[in-house]
Design a protein around this nucleic acid. Structure first.
Lengths: 126, 126
DNA sequence: CAGAATCCCCAATGATACTG
DNA sequence: CAGTATCATTGGGGATTCTG
């Protein structure tokens, strides 16, 4: 529920999603969770991404404190991105999301209808 | 990372996010996690949502197996939506997302990095 | 009351060329 | 190599109207 990425939403779920919302942010974080990478390395490791969107998403993630940008003042320039300490707190969340998504993919591809049953209400169950 | 909602993405994270991606899906799920509601009840409980988007999101959630649509063949029609058993598996994930988001809101709105660990469930959606 | 059908706007993304 | 600048496309979503 992406909602507005620019404006600050009071809803925590919106706030969280806005951080990882973007066509390639998931993949970027996935790559960088393995090890820091240079911009060009990232681009090559993500087939289909454009220079424009890579830079843009990287900047947003840096702005949100998820990534850190390391620049070496050389010619030609060498920039490396890595996950920040704060960004590391995001990883477990992504894992939970990923786990559910993996399960969801199974269910959809194997189209069972078992899940179409109503459940009893809840909230205490949470 | 919303990516494509229509196409099935092989990425689990994308798959999961596509399910809750939509301007009002979070709020809808939140409402229905308390108890089943009629369409009109939902609409009234979510200020600002339009008929069109409510129906649209409900249909998508039903398609994804998250919600169940109960229709009573009466005049006028009475339709009730509730969370499915499968949909309930989504709730813990939302809780995790919400917890991180709450932290993130503190961190951003507040000063630098003093995010405490108070984690009370639930958002305060309007 | 539930929801389908239309029209329209805009933010996100893509494509492409350019700069330091 | 890293990043910018422009233009074109598109799909989400708001507003409105219509129907069973």
């Amino acid at each position: 529920m992406p909602v507005s990425k620019k404006e600050i939403s009071p809803c925590p779920i919106d706030a969280m999603l806005s951080v990882i919302d973007g066509r390639w942010k998931g993949t970027i974080l996935w790559r960088l969770s393995e090890r820091p990478l240079r911009t060009s390395e990232l681009r090559r490791s993500i087939p289909g991404i454009t220079e424009r969107m890579l830079i843009r998403h990287l900047q947003e993630l840096v702005r949100d404190g998820i990534l850190v940008r390391h620049q070496e003042q050389t010619v030609p320039p060498c920039v490396r991105y890595s996950i920040s300490k704060y960004g590391l707190t995001l990883v477990p969340v992504l894992e939970v999301i990923c786990a559910w998504g993996r399960n969801h993919l199974k269910r959809t591809s194997g189209h069972g209808r078992e899940w179409s049953q109503a459940a009893q209400p809840h909230r205490n169950v949470l």
